[in-house]
Simulated scan of single mutants.
Amino acid sequence: MVSVIGVRFRYAGKIYYFDPAGIDLKLGEKVIVETARGIECGEVVQTLREVDDSEVVAPLKKVIRKATEEDLQHVEENKRKAKEAFGICLEKIKKHNLEMKLIDVEYTFDNNKILFYFTADGRVDFRELVKDLAAVFRTRIELRQIGVRDEAKMMGGLGVCGRCLCCCNHLTEFQPISIKMAKEQSLSLNPTKISGICGRLMCCLRYEHEVYEDLLKRIPKVNALVQTPDGPGTVVYVSLLQEKVKVKLDNDNEPDLKEYHASEVKLLKDAEKESEEQLDEADMELLKQLED
């Protein structure tokens, strides 16, 4: 076990562990730390705790100091300069006629590097652009291509639910999302209804996925043959979250459907694999792209 604190450099960003080096730190305090890309200023989001050695990336770097008022002023100055650099980079991109979209610009705390984040449909030859930017700013330049999900996290926005995007509000890391999750939750496979503003499957499809997986293991599927307290029958409707099924009894004198709790029926014969929702080729192609 090793003693660490958790530091975050962006709102809702990934949490990194550092050795507090004996400094008494509280939640929300700003600290100066050494990272793989240089000296940075971050916020303490987890106070002193013990974690397993396997959770720490060796060698564990130490906190240099608490951020002073001068350090915080320097951070604000870097943000101002980043806005200016953004405008300059846009001009250079237009000058070189590059097919890329600039998303964000960030100065490292020690000003040893400027990072330019962008998106593009494919690979971009930005060597000449880097030379131009280096001539203007006279420091190390790094152009980093990011995905559309990272773009949404940086830019922010509102989801179809009307709330702030999960990725820029509380999700620290992206998790894989699959079409299978939408199917198991009986959602429409219409790409426009299950994708977020990033154009990929909505992150919230994962939130209840484990619950649905557990329910699907215990509750008979539609068209399954089951034994009920009133005799055998065929399942015609399933309410997963209520854990109830509607059964068409195999009794000519009982033509009406009857509803049972899943615990009241016993599976006699599982249903055949359901045919997938019929989609045209365009929608099928969109669905494949949602998982990329």
Rank of each mutant, 00 (worst) to 15 (best):
Y107S: 00
F109L: 00
F109Y: 15
D110V: 07
D110I: 03
N111H: 11
N112R: 14
K113L: 15
K113P: 06
I114K: 04
I114N: 01
I114Y: 03
I114W: 06
F116K: 04
Y117M: 15
T119Y: 00
A120V: 03
R123C: 12
V124F: 13
D125W: 07
F126E: 00
F126N: 01
R127D: 03
R127C: 08
E128N: 13
E128H: 09
L129Y: 03
L129F: 13
V130Y: 01
L133V: 02
A134W: 06
V136E: 09
E142P: 02
E142G: 09
L143V: 02
L143P: 03
L143R: 07
L143G: 08
L143E: 02
L143F: 08
R144K: 14
Q145G: 10
Q145S: 15
I146G: 04
I146A: 04
V148A: 09
V148E: 05
V148T: 10
R149Q: 10
R149Y: 09
A152H: 02
A152F: 03
K153L: 05
K153P: 09
M154E: 01
M154P: 01
M155G: 04
G157P: 10
L158P: 07
L158Q: 11
V160A: 13
C161I: 04
C161V: 02
G162L: 08
R163H: 05
C167R: 08
N169Y: 06
L171I: 00
L171H: 10
T172K: 15
E173K: 14
E173P: 03
F174N: 04
Q175M: 12
Q175S: 12
P176M: 05
I177L: 13
I177E: 07
S178P: 14
I179L: 15
I179H: 05
K180S: 09
K180I: 03
A182V: 10
K183S: 08
E184P: 01
Q185K: 05
Q185C: 11
L187K: 15
L187F: 12
S188L: 06
L189R: 09
N190S: 14
P191N: 13
P191W: 08
P191G: 09
T192K: 13
K193W: 06
S195G: 01
G196Q: 07
G196S: 08
I197M: 11
C198G: 04
R200T: 05
L201D: 08
L201C: 14
L201M: 12
M202T: 00
M202K: 12
M202G: 01
L205G: 11
R206T: 14
E208Y: 05
H209V: 04
H209W: 13
E210N: 13
E210Y: 11
V211K: 14
Y212D: 01
E213F: 03
L215I: 00
L216N: 12
K217T: 03
K217M: 07
K217S: 02
R218D: 15
R218S: 15
I219R: 09
V222H: 08
V226A: 08
V226D: 03
D230S: 14
G231P: 06
G233F: 05
Y237T: 15
Y237P: 06
Y237W: 12
V238A: 05
S239D: 14
L240P: 01
